[in-house]
Simulated scan of single mutants.
Amino acid sequence: MREEIFSLVEQGKYIEARNKMAGLKVVDIAQLFEEIDQKKLLIIFRILPKDLSSDVFTHMSRELQRYVVESMTDQEAMSIIDDLFMDDVIDFLEEMPSNVVKKILKNTNEKTRLLINQFLRYPADSAGSIMTIEYIDLKKEMTVGQAVQYIKANGHDKETINTCYVINSRRILEGVISLGTIVLNDDATIIRDIMDSDVLAINTHDDQEEVANLFKKYDYYVMPVVDTENRLVGIITVDDVLDVIDQESTEDIQKMAAMQPSEKEYLKTGNWVLAKHRIPWLLILMLSAIFTGGIIKRYENALQSVIILASFIPMLMDTGGNSGSQSSTLVIRGLALGELQPGDIWKVLWKE
């Protein structure tokens, strides 16, 4: 299928290529776009069905998203942005240069612009920066019948309707209720009587790594986000958490290798940037090697008298380096998973 689509694109048969793509998953289409010439890609993207093009856009790389938006008219760009969930819009804008952000903001309505600016003010790795505002909230005074009608009327463009949150007149979070609980009760039943008031919420300024740990600990697929006054402002879904876990795991692995973490892909990171991330630790390790050389020099006479001892030096140095790598991997991963705490340092040193 991929080769056939590539062949159609090369021949300029864009309509046929689009029809072939329509049968693929949006993630697969986004991956195909990464391999197609950008000018031809833009033609195909423009003739994709509107709802499909928006879904594909969310799965494109940031570089490709930027190219598409910069190459489109303001009206075309906004037709895509308007169909995205708010968390996807924020993820996109956070990675874009100021000219692209201005292009988007100047064409949005005042309400949307205020929401975007509010999201962009949250700290970079906080719960507020990854939450979405597309959720279902119910009033505790509603009956089940009213709740069902409300969900039917407003649930089409929400990230999830399986979990609904119950608020009061001041938007204070008071409970949570599943769609299954709602539909299994009589229409006259009051939501307050069947909701679960023991609801665990995340603060907008909580670190995203802490959020991921909460999802893992409690096996949730969605959690509410509240402000400092416990007012419901958004939700975080498990798909957002998976992105966080991927990002944090990559950061941990880079730290294990004595490198400064980088958010860009390896092939899309410049040589100077890569060097800047790696040189500091390489210099530190080089200094430690100088001390090692000094120790060897101190025993120079012994090595000259018993030459066979010199053959053990590479073995001992390699074994020391390997055991150090094993220890750092175990400890850093343990810290990342919460299995180790800074106070465990003496236990770790004893074991190692």
Rank of each mutant, 00 (worst) to 15 (best):
H59V: 10
D82I: 13
E70Q: 12
I44R: 01
A77Q: 09
K106H: 13
E94L: 09
D82Y: 14
I44H: 03
I90Q: 07
E110W: 01
F85N: 12
V101L: 14
E70A: 11
S54A: 15
I47G: 03
V68W: 07
E94H: 09
M96W: 06
F92M: 10
V100P: 00
L41A: 04
D83S: 12
R46W: 00
V69W: 07
T58E: 06
I81H: 12
M96N: 06
T58F: 00
M86A: 10
T73E: 07
E110F: 01
E63L: 03
K106D: 06
F85E: 11
E63Q: 05
S71F: 03
F85V: 14
L105G: 04
T58G: 12
A77T: 11
S98K: 05
I81A: 15
L42G: 02
K103C: 02
I81P: 13
N107A: 13
D87S: 14
E95A: 14
D91Y: 12
E110G: 03
N99S: 13
E63F: 03
L52M: 15
E70M: 09
P49F: 11
I43E: 05
L64P: 05
E63D: 02
Y67V: 00
E110P: 08
E70N: 10
M72N: 06
D82N: 15
K103V: 01
S61F: 10
L52Y: 14
P49G: 09
I90V: 13
T112I: 03
E110K: 09
D87G: 08
P97I: 01
L93G: 04
V100L: 01
I47N: 07
M60K: 14
L42I: 06
I47Q: 00
P49C: 05
P97C: 04
D87E: 06
R113F: 02
R62I: 15
V101T: 03
I43D: 01
M60P: 01
K103G: 04
R46M: 07
E95C: 02
R46L: 02
D82H: 14
S98I: 09
D82C: 10
N99M: 01
A77V: 13
L52E: 08
V89D: 07
